[in-house]
Design a protein around this nucleic acid. Structure first.
Lengths: 334, 334
DNA sequence: CTGTTAGCGCTTTCAA
DNA sequence: TTGAAAGCGCTAACAG
């Protein structure tokens, strides 16, 4: 049986309150301090966090509900968030929504029951009504990577449409006019698509339907199929450049190119999103929009902890970070 | 303020014990059952897990200490473990040791203080003395992906040396004799190296020093540098095949090949480990040893939960799973 | 600065 | 079956 604060009392003859105060960094006569420290060492005492939580109503644990735990993207976010939180004494309870709305709702409920102090969420559904259960319990939620229709929650995102716009501006500046886009239907995908359209309109370029591909998910399959489709076009009609609006889609696109033996950037230019493992293995190095992963995670965690401190007295804030375009070698100047 | 069991009492007029029994699935007169259920719905009551844990001494949370949370490998393990545990009502507290022994020790201590019921660990150090703190607290630990020098803990691994041996056997069967190996110095790497040696010896092939590369970590850099080194050899001396003993190393090897414009498998054959994202984007598809990721994770979790139930009465078990060689197109027959 | 006391919300004897 | 009461290990008034 592990030692308790009462054992420390028997050992030192002091009162519980004094010991508790010492444990929580209060002032104690140095003579007593010594005694307590000795007893702690002797009995190998560790405070029982559960008991502590019961009275303080704080678990010093936050829940991280991830859209897809196996993906490289959330892995990196997880890494940074976990580092930030651990440094401040917080633990991280992880739940995987697996790109499924129902599992997302369940995960949030799970976190609430586990009495987490706050929730970090990479949302799947546009309007997770399940968030209501967190709100009712007074558990703050911070959204990462995408916002919801309602403005009720703090969120940390990048300006997706602007980033995509700059990416396409760049392609146009390089002389491309036949530019295809492959995007997923959910939030980030459609935001990025908006940026694409804006840039094309600005340049006065009409986009034929056959240059635009969209799918339901962030999938490599979407990228693969779409690129295969594009490669079926007559050479004259084939786009000279492609904007792939996320990591997984880029993987699919590259697969298709490799399989067909079409060279990038000689025959077709490519620009993608997210600087993860891929750009390291790829040849040529992919030109891409790099999201500030560490900042997204730590800024989100910072806001969450702050919210835990101050409650809902301040209005929800929306932090929009800048995502830089990193030139690689996958775009050719025409 | 959230409703408590006492509110249910006021609402129903029943005793606390009866309500508690109902909550824990005990037998209650159906009349009372009804009353309780109504009250729960009306008050939106959720049991306070913290209070529950304080008395039952079970948090229904397990700690997962990962060697590198951002890696694809641990992401996939995490996914499966999390699914298995959530299905059984367990939460997962995650800690990243970041390939650092000190952080590993800290993570384990953190989990112990958080009162987790058990720990799943992908070890970094060969002998984490920090595990002592878990043992002392009676918290069971199950090792994933590698074992320790001591046999004191349950573990789930694959037979690394045997898997590597089969991979090299295959290369030899394909007519290769000049086979290089790139491995990391830690557990899995050196086990796989043993398999390599065994296979080469069986075939009576002498291996020159310059064909063997080892580094301290699982890094892409090691793969990259080693392959670059190999490519400096005169064509006659250059190996016809390379065994890369893990995912990250393979990435580095491929980078080096791409950069040098050396074709695989035409000019050099390659065989790797771990069927993660890479094999999907690569052209040609990599021939590799596929570890049964889901089985490793769920088997580990299963053993852990079982250990939590039955304590230490049974001796530690070592589960060694079979890893199949999956033929891709990266190995050429000579 | 110190100690006594009353809970936090729940489970669990034990007697009814 | 049910309920009263004790207590899990700790913190937080409060009075000294």
């Amino acid at each position: 049986m592990a030692a308790t604060i009462k054992d420390i009392r028997s050992e030192t003859g002091l009162g519980l309150a004094t010991i508790s105060k010492y444990l929580n960094g209060g002032n104690v006569r140095s003579e007593n301090r010594q005694k307590i420290e000795e007893a702690i060492k002797k009995l190998d005492y560790h405070p029982n966090e559960t008991a502590r939580s019961l009275v303080t109503k704080r678990t010093r644990t936050i829940g991280f509900v991830v859209n897809n735990i196996a993906s490289n993207f959330s892995g990196v976010l997880l890494q940074h968030a976990s580092a930030y939180l651990h440094d401040r004494g917080y633990g991280m309870m992880i739940c995987d929504s697996n790109l499924d709305e129902e599992q997302e709702a369940e995960s949030i409920r799970f976190c609430v029951e586990k009495q987490v102090d706050g929730i970090l969420l990479i949302p799947v559904s546009k309007d997770p009504s399940s968030l209501g259960s967190a709100e009712k319990s007074g558990i703050p939620v911070v959204l990462l990577d995408r916002e919801l229709d309602s403005d009720d929650f703090d969120c940390v995102i990048i300006d997706n449409s602007n980033a995509a716009e700059r990416a396409v501006d760049y392609l146009i500046k390089c002389g491309h006019r036949k530019i295809s886009v492959i995007y997923s239907g959910e939030y980030t995908g459609s935001e990025r698509f908006k940026g694409y359209r804006r840039s094309m309109e600005k340049a006065g370029i009409d986009v034929p339907e056959k240059y635009m591909f969209s799918g339901r998910t962030h999938s490599a399959e979407l990228g693969y199929n779409s690129m295969k489709e594009l490669l079926k076009l007559k050479l004259k009609e084939r786009p000279t450049a492609v904007l792939s609006t996320n990591y997984e889609v880029s993987l699919g696109v590259i697969m298709a190119l490799n399989e067909s033996g079409v060279k990038c950037p000689e025959e077709i230019s490519l620009i993608g999103f997210d600087e993860l493992i891929l750009p390291m293995v790829m040849k040529p190095r992919l030109t891409l929009v790099a999201q500030p992963m560490e900042e997204i995670a730590s800024e989100g965690a910072r806001i969450l902890l702050q919210r835990i401190e101050e409650g809902r007295k301040n209005p929800p804030q929306k932090v929009s970070l800048y995502a830089a375009l990193k030139e690689g070698e996958s775009v050719r100047e025409l």
